[in-house]
Design a protein around this nucleic acid. Structure first.
Length: 308
DNA sequence: AAATATGTCAACCGCACAAAA
DNA sequence: CTTTTGTGCGGTTGACATATT
C-alpha cells in the first residue's frame, strides 16, 4: 500500500553542508542528472534526506547560479515582479534564471523590504508636512471615478485595443509578464518617453487591459534629503500594459496611487485609506528613490522605470 | 577590548498538491 | 478509490559575521 519511504529517517544529518558532502552530491548528479532525489541519499551514502539534497543542489550547487551583488537592473525587476505577483518567489525567479527563489526571497526580506519601509515613512512625512497647502489645493481638483473611466476609454480608443471578455482590469498572467519583460530585454537602447508615446506600438496580443499611473522625478533636486520628495516636481506617466502612453502634470492637487486592481485618483487621504490594501506607493517613485539613494547612476536601470 | 545589537543567508519546517502503489 | 510519499513552495529559524556601544 502506498509508496515506499523516501529514506531512512534514522541518523539524518542536518545543518550546513560540508565541502565533502557537496563533492559527493555534485559527482552523483553529474553522472545521473538531477531528479529522483529519493535515490540520492541511498546511492551516495549521504546522511541527508532527499529533500535536503534537492535544496542544496537547486539553491547552491546548480551550475549557472549567480550569488550576491544584485544589480540595479535585477533589483528593479524584483521590485516590479513582486508588486505584480506578490511573494511568488519561484515565479519571480523564473524571470531571473541565474537567481534562486531562496536568494531572491532573502534579498527582498533583508534589503528591499527595508528600503520600501524607509521610503514610505519618508513619503508620508513629506506629505503630512505639506498637508496645509496640499489640502487647500485639493479642494479645487479631485478626480472622480468617471474621470478614470473616460481616461481608460480614451486609451482604448487611441490604442485600438479591445478589453477582453472577462474584463480583467489588471493583466497579471505570467504570460503577459513574460511578454513585457521579453520586450524590455530585447530593447537595447534607452528609449525615451516620446518614443513610447506612440500608441501604435502596443502589442496587439495584450488582450487584458490594464492602466496605471506612474510618477517619476525628472531630475534630482538640489539639497534634497533622502527622506523627502518634491511632490510638485513629479509627473504622471499613463501606461498600458507596461508601455508608456502619455504623461501629464502631477501637481499637489492630484494624488495618484497605483492599486493592482484599480486606478485611483483623488485626495491624499483617500489614497492613504486605499493604501491599506496595498502599501506600495507608485512603483517608479520607488525605483527613482532607490536609484538616487544609491548614488550610482545606471542608465540601463532607468529603462525599467519607463517601460513599466 | 568586550558585550551587545543588528544584518545576512543557508537551511529547515510545514503545507499543498501530484504521483505512485 | 485510498493511502502514502515525492516534490515544490513560501515562511521562518538560527548560526555566523559585522557594526555599534
Amino acid at each position: 500500500m502506498g509508496r515506499p519511504p523516501c529514506c531512512d529517517k534514522v541518523e539524518i544529518k542536518k545543518g550546513p553542508w560540508t565541502p565533502e558532502e557537496d563533492i559527493i552530491l555534485v559527482t552523483y548528479i553529474q553522472e545521473h542528472g538531477p531528479g529522483n532525489w529519493r535515490a540520492v541519499p541511498t546511492n551516495t551514502g549521504l546522511l541527508r534526506c532527499s529533500k535536503s539534497c534537492r535544496l542544496r543542489w537547486t539553491n547552491y550547487l546548480r551550475p549557472g547560479i549567480k550569488r550576491g551583488n544584485f544589480t540595479q537592473h535585477e533589483e528593479g525587476m524584483i521590485i516590479h515582479l513582486q508588486a505584480l505577483l506578490g511573494n511568488k518567489w519561484a515565479a519571480i525567479a523564473s524571470y531571473l534564471p541565474q537567481r534562486t527563489d531562496n536568494d531572491i526571497k532573502n534579498y527582498w526580506n533583508t534589503h528591499l523590504k527595508k528600503k520600501l519601509k524607509k521610503f514610505q515613512s519618508g513619503f508620508d512625512h513629506k506629505m503630512s508636512s505639506e498637508s496645509t497647502a496640499y489640502d487647500q489645493s485639493m479642494s479645487s481638483k479631485t478626480y472622480t471615478e468617471n474621470d478614470t473611466k473616460s481616461t481608460i476609454d480614451n486609451i482604448k480608443n487611441h490604442s485600438g485595443l479591445m478589453q477582453s471578455e472577462n474584463s480583467s482590469v489588471y493583466a497579471s498572467s505570467a504570460e503577459n509578464i513574460s511578454k513585457l519583460l521579453g520586450g524590455w530585454m530585447r530593447s537595447s537602447s534607452t528609449s525615451t518617453l516620446k518614443e513610447n508615446r506612440d500608441f501604435g506600438k502596443i502589442p496587439s496580443e495584450f488582450n487584458d487591459f490594464s492602466a496605471s499611473f506612474q510618477c517619476y522625478r525628472p531630475q534630482k533636486m538640489e539639497n534634497e534629503g533622502t527622506n523627502g520628495i518634491q511632490i510638485d516636481e513629479l509627473e504622471c506617466i499613463l501606461s498600458f500594459d507596461g508601455h508608456n502612453l502619455d504623461r501629464m502634470a502631477c501637481d499637489k492637487s492630484s494624488s495618484v496611487l497605483i492599486d493592482h486592481e484599480k486606478v485611483h485618483f483623488g485626495h491624499e487621504n483617500k489614497s492613504k485609506n486605499d493604501s491599506n490594501n496595498n502599501n506600495n506607493p507608485p512603483l517608479s517613485f520607488l525605483e527613482k528613490w532607490f536609484l538616487d539613494e544609491s548614488a550610482v547612476q545606471v542608465e540601463g536601470a532607468m529603462e525599467l522605470s519607463q517601460i513599466f
